[in-house]
């Protein structure tokens, strides 16, 4: 979707806060929110792509102004309401109006050490050979999926070169709609001068990981 989240190359944003303190959390509630997400029981099939799409759909002003972990809260709350895990009223009050039947006990602290090494993989057995070869020129498609997509606006219509392929990976556009459909994933390199009218450094490059259906031969 052409949403507020698709920020690459947008202009008008100010300087970076390079003096930010090094500590991982700056507010107690931020740490709490991260811990909640790592600890809570999942009672609905929420994929990483669905999470990202629900975050992208946060109202634009909120997306740009609310702190990062507050956006996590908003996203998890929306997924819970959508999946029937909680109501808006329950999330507002913090009081449960209805129990969830048949729920397994939540994660206990003794399970955390092992869980830190849980590593999700997104590569899948390939069903078709890659359409493009390393070194081949490709052009990113102008049109992108109106739902979730990982094809940013700033490369659409631009010409790049395939620098690697990674076999088949879960395709986010389908995954965010509840369907796991693997597709070949490539790394594609774009010259800065191809992307930005003001770019002058001939050697500068931007690399993106793009799925096959985002690309045409150039």
């Amino acid at each position: 979707m052409d949403g507020i989240h698709d920020l690459g190359g947008r202009q008008g944003y100010g300087p970076i806060d390079v003096g930010e303190p090094e500590e991982p959390f700056h507010e107690a509630w931020e740490a709490r929110m991260l811990g909640i997400v790592r600890s809570m029981s999942r009672v609905a099939p929420w994929s990483i792509d669905w999470f990202r799409h629900v975050r992208e759909l946060i109202e634009p002003v909120d997306y740009l102004t609310r702190p990062y972990y507050d956006q996590w809260l908003q996203t998890y709350a929306a997924m819970m309401v959508n999946s029937g895990v909680a109501t808006v009223g329950e999330l507002a009050s913090g009081k449960s109006a209805a129990a969830i039947p048949g729920l397994a006990p939540p994660m206990t602290p003794d399970k955390v050490a092992a869980a830190t090494r849980n590593t999700a993989r997104f590569d899948r057995p390939a069903t078709e050979p890659p359409r493009f070869t390393v070194g081949e020129a490709v052009r990113a498609r102008i049109d992108a999926n109106p739902g979730h997509t990982r094809l940013p606006q700033y490369v659409r219509g631009r010409r790049g070169e395939v620098t690697a392929h990674h076999g088949a990976h879960v395709f986010p556009d389908a995954s965010a709609a509840g369907e796991e459909r693997p597709e070949t994933l490539y790394t594609v390199c774009f010259a800065a001068t191809e992307l930005w009218p003001e770019a002058t450094a001939a050697g500068d490059r931007v690399y993106l990981d793009l799925w096959e259906s985002y690309l045409d031969a150039a």
Binding site: G35, I36, S41, V43, A77, S96, L103, P106, P109
Partner: peptide, 20 residues
């Protein structure tokens, strides 16, 4: 908001605060 979420998840049996 985070406090309300944590309270709700604990009440629903979906969260152990010690794990957080």
């Amino acid at each position: 908001r985070v406090k309300a979420l944590e309270s709700l998840l604990v009440e629903k049996g979906m969260l152990d605060p010690a794990t957080v």
